[in-house]
């Protein structure tokens, strides 16, 4: 569509919204209005609660009568010696690690699975691989704890393979924590995340593969030149959608696996809010607002980059 045509169509659209047209679309508008009302009630009205971040909120006095505190709680987050910057670092680090490792493994897994010719084997692997998604973190963390214990599976394996001389106490050293979180996430979510990529792969025109085969392309070349490019738009859209979640690096796994020694690397924003904000709603809200803004910056930036580089984008 050339730009002229686009303009023309927009003008045309605008001129069409007349009273009769509104009448004609009455039912549709009512249905749409329901969603708008839903959005206002459940997404926008609760934002009024953000006021709490600017007062010394007390449950007894309520939102309207609590004393005003200005930016006190935002200053609290970033005061001297505050652990909050470290908490942001942990959150972003674990969030990014999770996002990257999960995306890469899910795509890799989907492609590998797609190459399997035996239908029964394929279905079996797929089912088994996405089952862990349905386990709760409570269960998963106890498995992880057992696996990484000093006398656990991982240590035993590494010692028997002579990679380690003596078992390592993984939960005593801060440097292992992020990888353990990433590995646990990959273990739990890979199969599930691969489903959407598998579906996209199935939608790629088989004619492309046939043509490539006639041209003498091997499996590897077919993956590189057909499957991956075919997945590109899905990957970008999913990345944009997930990047806002980087700041939700998780709560349960860090809370359940974290100990005092690990707290410098395991405390995420959610856990910080729990520790500092449970008897102090104002501080919790302030941290929440901060988190929202970071997420929004991420989504907008990534979307902007995607648009600039000519990729698919959300808005």
């Amino acid at each position: 569509m050339s730009s002229n045509e686009k303009d023309a169509s927009e003008i045309k659209l605008k001129s069409k919204i007349s009273k009769t047209e509104l009448k004609r679309q009455k039912v549709l508008l009512i249905i749409a209005a329901l969603y708008v009302i839903y959005g206002i009630v459940f997404y926008y009205l609760p934002l009024a609660g953000w006021v709490m971040a600017f007062e010394n909120f007390s449950i007894g006095k309520g939102i309207f009568k609590s004393e005003k505190a200005g930016l006190r709680w935002f200053k609290y987050l970033f005061k001297k010696n505050s652990s909050f910057p470290r908490v942001i670092r942990n959150t972003l680090a674990m969030g990014s690690l999770n996002l990257i490792s999960q995306t890469v493994t899910a795509i890799g897994f989907a492609i590998l699975l797609n190459e399997v010719r035996n239908t029964f084997g394929k279905k079996l692997v797929q089912t088994i691989s996405y089952l862990p998604h349905f386990l709760s973190w409570i269960v998963v963390t106890s498995i992880v704890r057992e696996a990484f214990a000093t006398n656990g599976m991982v240590n035993e394996l590494l010692v028997n393979l002579h990679i380690l001389k003596t078992p390592i106490s993984y939960f005593m050293h801060t440097q292992y924590f992020w990888p353990i979180v990433a590995i646990s996430n990959v273990w739990k979510e890979t199969g599930w995340n691969a489903i959407i990529y598998l579906a996209t792969i199935t939608a790629i025109d088989p004619a492309l593969y046939e043509a490539a085969a006639i041209d003498g392309a091997g499996r590897w070349q077919k993956i590189k030149n057909i499957t991956l490019p075919g997945l590109r738009s899905t990957i970008i859209i999913l990345l944009i959608m997930n990047i806002g979640n980087v700041i939700n690096a998780g709560f349960e796994i860090q809370y359940l696996l974290g100990t005092g020694v690990l707290s410098p690397v395991s405390t995420t924003i959610d856990i910080y809010v729990l520790n500092h904000g449970m008897k102090n709603f104002s501080l919790g809200t302030a941290a929440g607002i901060f988190k929202t803004f970071v997420s929004m910056i991420f989504v907008f930036t990534f979307n902007f980059i995607a648009r600039k580089t000519g990729e698919d984008h959300l808005f």
Binding site: Y76, S83, G260, G277
Partner: peptide, 17 residues
Amino acid sequence: STMTEGGAAWTEMGECK
């Protein structure tokens, strides 16, 4: 609780320990 300065210090002392 972290509402007071002493309470905030107490929370952080706990984390530190």
